[in-house]
């Protein structure tokens, strides 16, 4: 960690519940308690449908929890912790959007690129919304991610792996305090996945970002030194309810 004495919580969650239901099939994600410190690298590992994306979306403030004991967010040391649940309750999405804009980079499972912008402008999107000047960061990231030659292209002329690297570039370009990545390598072959994953984690290190990563492939996560969140999924056959409990 570059700043401060180190460990203070960015996220502090208590009794956060998200319930989703469609056509009588229900899913419930429970988070009795979760604390993520500045500079941590967190891995969220679970099978498909276990609620990883659900949790990450809540941590990126794009999905409102169904019930909240506490949901506090403190992006910088010394700042007051923000009660995000209050913003949700008031419907104040702009505060949430501003927090996300300044402090969070999000790599989506797939897609999330704008087809009408060049690779360069797609990566730069997270900077331009903040009004940051062009300072070579985009080029540097593209260099590191091996897509320096592709900067002028549009996303539709990229391979899937290249698109995923553009998405990683955008999530990091504004040097956010937190990078959230939802299975960034899911659609890649194992070799490319390993490659992209280590590129991602390397850059996150370089940018001093806290990393929250979802993956169902834990075998190569283990070697990268991530803290794994404890998590348990139960399926009740009769009531058509799947419930996942995450804590850490």
């Amino acid at each position: 960690m570059a700043t401060g004495s180190g460990h203070y919580p960015i996220y502090l969650l208590h009794d956060v519940v998200k319930k989703r239901e469609a056509k009588g099939v229900a899913f419930r994600l429970k988070v009795p308690s979760l604390r993520i410190d500045r500079g941590e690298k967190i891995a969220l590992i679970g099978e498909s449908g276990s609620g990883k994306s659900t949790l990450l979306d809540m941590l990126a403030f794009v999905l409102q929890p169904s019930a909240v004991g506490a949901f506090r967010f403190r992006p910088e040391e010394g700042e007051d912790a923000l009660d995000l649940d209050a913003s949700w309750q008031r419907g104040n999405l702009n505060i949430l959007g501003d927090m996300r804009k300044r402090h969070i980079g999000y790599v989506m499972q797939t897609g999330g690129l704008l087809p009408y912008l060049s690779v360069h402008d797609n990566i730069n999107l997270s900077r331009s919304v903040l009004g940051l000047r062009l300072d070579g960061t985009v080029e540097h990231l593209a260099e590191m991610l091996g897509i320096a030659d592709q900067l002028k292209k549009r996303p539709d002329a990229l391979s899937t792996g290249e698109r995923q690297r553009v998405a990683i570039g955008r999530a990091l370009a504004h040097r956010p305090a937190i990078v959230i990545a939802d299975e960034p390598t899911a659609s890649l072959d194992p070799y490319a996945a390993q490659n992209v994953m280590s590129l991602f984690l390397g850059l996150a290190d370089e940018f001093n970002s806290t990393v929250i990563l979802a993956s169902h492939a834990w075998y190569h996560i283990k070697s990268l030194g991530l803290r794994r969140l404890a998590h348990r999924t139960t399926r009740s056959k009769g009531s058509k309810l799947t419930e996942t409990v995450v804590s850490g």
């Binding site: 990126a60 794009v62 999405l93 702009n94 959007g97 501003d98 996300r100 804009k101 300044r102 999000y106 989506m108 897609g111 999330g112 690129l113 704008l114 087809p115 999107l125 997270s126 919304v129 903040l130 955008r170």
Partner: peptide, 14 residues
Amino acid sequence: RKQLSVLRLVGYRT
């Protein structure tokens, strides 16, 4: 809508 959501994801306001 998906593209508009991407803009919101990077922090553009409603």
